[in-house]
Design a protein around this nucleic acid. Sequence first.
DNA 1: CCACAGGACGGCT
DNA 2: AGCCGTCCTGTG
Length: 287
Amino acid sequence: MEEQNLVLKNIKSFNLTHIFECGQCFRWNRNQDGSYTGVVKNNVINIRMIDGNIYITSFGENDIKKLFQNYFDMNRNYESIKAQLGEVDENMKKSILYGEGIRLLNQDLWETIISFIISANNNIPRIKGIIERICKRYGNKMEYNGQTYYSFPTPEQLGSASVEDLRNLGLGFRDVRVYETTKMILNRGIDLEKLHQEPNTEVVREELLKLPGVGPKVADCILLFSTLKRFDVFPIDVWVRRVMNELYIHSEYEEKVSKKEINRIANEKFGNLCGIAQQYLFYWKRG
DNA sequence: CCACAGGACGGCT
DNA sequence: AGCCGTCCTGTG
């Protein structure tokens, strides 16, 4: 464990608030000074922006330069994505302007699966609280700058939790789902490494849907926000449904419009970039 | 007291 | 295949 520093200049499409508050992650917290602190693998990371420059301090086992490059999706050209999506219509133009600094994080697949199972019928403050308690109970302890942080537990670590243990951490009815999914992954009922190799998104989606607690919406979030990084999915929740109806469907009965129909329109308009389009629209309309 | 929060699941038609 | 009640828990 060592402290490392990294400074990056002239980075386009990078805004901490846009990245951390667009609903893709649960373990980053804003500090008084505007910087954000989070835990990635066995690393505590603090990141801030001053005059358009990025300043990072990390404490942990990974090389921060490599970790940053990968985790923040720096190998992808968001400028060209935005240019392409901006051609679609004025709505996309406005939403891109609003969330111009969004980047989709490459979060650990296992962590993303468990986190979004917990997100079902839940609100963000409570989701963050539950995940924090899980990390504190089953993750690795890290002392840094007089504060204590915890990594997200491995499948083996979380595998020691009983259903009752999970219920006591406040998971509610999601306890059995997290428990069963953890067992299934530990027993290689699903091979997470293999999923990365599969080129067909729909095939990967079907695999994820086998996990207890993973339905259509959660599966799409996992595909978009984890290292699987598939942009050709369109997670539909109440907010996205609202936006899509308001902008493109104009139905008097918004809740009656089927997900299939919403998905069809999204694909028609945004093609294989519908995943990132969803993020701009979502962040824009949700404010 | 009730409604609701960034769904999944099971039973039903 | 589509519809609908129910599922824990904290907050307003």
